[in-house]
Amino acid sequence: MANIEAAYQQVCDKIIDGHFDLTSAEHNAITDFYILWNLRDRENSEDKIYPQFSEFKPEKLVSDKNQQEKLEKEGVLFWNEKGEIPNRFLTGSSLQMQLWIERERMESTTWGIFKAKPDNGEFLVPDRISLHSVVPVTPDLCLVAGSKSKIVDFKFVARVNGLSLENSERYYFAKSIGNCPVLLQATLRDSLIRENLNHSDITTMR
């Protein structure tokens, strides 16, 4: 998955340098990162399952924790003292399969670059972004799926931060929390972002 993160970082570097015309490959790189972020969040939220295969009996169970760690570092699959395979060995394959499925579903997705006006607040970074297709990039930049690039004001930043805060499960962070306006409303959803794309307080980026 490191190649997905590296490709996304290259796109972010380009955006931060002020280049807002993205190629099809760069839109796809953002989509891949968005999917990966969601899949990892889903993985962390689910209960860890340790598979057992009743039809297959291993020659040896590995009960020593130090030996388990050594085997894991070498990428060697093992059964623990309970006859279970640690879930993390199967996670990589599962993520790759889900990534392929989500890529097909989001194949035509494009991303707009939203830049906050100077002194109009900063974007929060939540642990969960699956409930709204907004990806924070820097304190004053975020990416929004299916939208054109925009310059946004304090009110819009507050609404996006409200979504981020309400949908966070474990944590959120920012460069400076005190500079992050938040408008909390339980009814805020993707439609709220879409509605505000046409408001007069948002200027098309040139």
Score class of each variant (00 low, 15 high):
Leu36Ala: 08
Lys70Ala: 14
Asn120Thr: 10
His27Leu: 10
Pro136Arg: 08
Leu61Lys: 07
Gln96Asn: 13
Pro139Trp: 02
Asp140Met: 06
Leu124Cys: 09
Glu69Leu: 13
Leu90Cys: 09
Glu104Met: 11
Leu61Gln: 01
Glu55Val: 13
Leu71Gly: 03
Leu39Gln: 07
Leu61His: 03
Asp32Tyr: 02
Lys65Phe: 04
Lys57Ser: 15
Leu131Val: 09
Trp100Leu: 14
Lys117Tyr: 15
Arg40Leu: 12
Lys57Val: 13
Glu81Gln: 12
Trp79Ala: 04
Phe78His: 07
Glu26Ser: 03
Lys70Gln: 14
Asn87Cys: 05
Phe123Tyr: 09
Leu90Thr: 09
Asp140His: 13
Thr31Lys: 00
Leu124Ala: 07
Thr138Lys: 10
Thr31Trp: 00
Gly112Cys: 03
Lys82Asp: 11
Arg88Thr: 08
Glu122Thr: 10
Leu71Met: 12
Gly112Arg: 05
Asn120Trp: 00
Gly112Ala: 04
Pro58Cys: 01
Phe53Ile: 15
Ile35Gly: 05
Glu81Lys: 12
Gly83Glu: 03
Asn87Thr: 09
Asp127Leu: 02
Asn38Phe: 05
Gly92His: 10
Ser149Lys: 05
Asp64Gln: 06
Leu124Lys: 06
Thr109Trp: 12
Lys148Ser: 14
Glu72Cys: 08
Asp47Leu: 10
Asp32Pro: 02
Ile30Leu: 11
Val135Pro: 02
Tyr34Val: 00
Arg105Leu: 12
Ile49Gly: 01
Lys48Gly: 05
Pro58Phe: 03
Lys73Gln: 13
Leu77Tyr: 04
Lys117Arg: 15
Leu124Trp: 04
Tyr34Leu: 00
Asn120Ala: 14
Trp111Arg: 06
Gly92Glu: 11
Pro139Ala: 01
Thr110Cys: 08
Trp100Ile: 13
Glu43Pro: 04
Tyr50Arg: 14
Met97Thr: 13
Glu104Phe: 06
Ala145Phe: 01
Asp64Ile: 01
Ile151Leu: 15
Ile49His: 09
Asp32Glu: 13
Gln68Tyr: 04
His27Ile: 06
Ser149Asn: 10
Gly75Asp: 07
Met97Asn: 12
Ala29Lys: 02
Ile49Lys: 10
Lys70Val: 09
Ile113Gln: 07
Lys117Thr: 10
Lys57Ala: 11
Ser149Pro: 07
Leu36Ile: 05
Asp41Thr: 11
Ala25Met: 05
Lys70Pro: 00
Thr110Pro: 02
Glu69Ser: 07
Ser45Asn: 14
Lys65Pro: 00
Lys65Asn: 06
Asn44Trp: 08
Ser147Gln: 14
Asn66Phe: 07
Phe53Leu: 15
Asn28Lys: 15
Leu77Ser: 01
Arg128Ser: 14
